[in-house]
């Protein structure tokens, strides 16, 4: 059994599934376009309007675009990894697609893995667009680019964990959709979407440090300013990814 699981033929099915799912995603690009449109349009507006693209006093000399670009990038990862992934996976479960795979030699976890990879890719691709738009509108290139990329990748993995966990726990596709929408608000709040982290009270910021997107914002901000992100922030992200992933594998229902 263990030998069969590692033969090239079996590994090949992962990519076959991933390719099929990617084709299906592009065949129905509606949700994808909507998801990409919102943050990109927001970044363009912030970058074009002089009031938001120039340094502002209220933000300690950085512009609104500088402040919000990383938040929009995390928002994108969240939408892709939580909303799109959980609604699709739970609809697959409802239709019996995951159960059908359980009865084949390919375990449904491989489809889940393929989906996670695709939505990670989607989030990263839109983030690249956002970064290019930002830089074109005068946002300085992050000084610690490696730390910046690592931080965002860890955010992406952590939110994928959350997305899979929501799918695992939600009994229906509709509920998965509802829960992932509701979860969006506190996560984005602590990322600083409504109140930038620099303006949060120390207590609130401490709470924010322990939320996935708060920790992500902290790590990303540090790397923009030229420092390597703090180990604590990175560990929080890794912790969310591992905890959600482990819990999801325990409770995930395939049917």
């Amino acid at each position: 059994m263990t030998i069969a699981a590692t033969t090239p033929a079996r590994r090949h099915t992962f990519w076959k599934l991933a390719r099929t799912e990617a084709v299906l995603l592009l065949r129905m690009p509606g949700p994808l376009i909507w998801m990409a449109l919102l943050p990109v349009a927001a970044a363009v507006v912030l970058g074009v309007v002089p009031g938001t693209s120039r340094p502002a006093k209220a933000l300690d000399g950085t512009s609104y675009l500088d402040t919000y670009l990383p938040i929009l990038m995390m928002f994108t990862l969240l939408m892709s990894g939580v909303n799109l992934l959980s609604s699709l996976l739970s609809s697959y479960r409802e239709k019996g697609i995951l159960r059908r795979l359980s009865a084949s030699p390919v375990p449904p976890s491989r489809l889940l893995g393929a989906q996670a990879l695709i939505y990670l890719g989607v989030g990263v691709a839109i983030d690249v667009v956002l970064l290019v738009v930002g830089i074109a509108c005068g946002v300085p290139v992050p000084h610690q680019l490696g730390g910046f990329v690592l931080s965002l990748l860890l955010v992406a993995v952590a939110v994928l964990g959350i997305g899979v966990l929501i799918t695992a726990l939600a009994p229906s596709a509709r509920l998965a959709q509802a829960v992932s929408t509701v979860v969006l608000f506190p996560l984005m709040f602590f990322a600083g979407l409504w109140l930038p982290r620099t303006q949060m009270s120390p207590a609130l910021r401490t709470v924010s440090d322990y939320t996935p997107l708060g920790a992500g914002a902290r790590a990303v901000q540090a790397s923009i300013e030229g420092q390597w992100p703090s180990t604590a922030a990175l560990l929080v992200l890794v912790g969310y990814a591992l905890a959600c992933g482990a819990l999801a594998t325990r409770v995930f229902r395939w049917a």
Partner: peptide, 12 residues
């Protein structure tokens, strides 16, 4: 196996 009430991806 052919399962009862089992669908495939709608656009497949």
């Amino acid at each position: 196996v052919q399962l009862q009430h089992s669908e495939l991806q709608p656009n497949l």
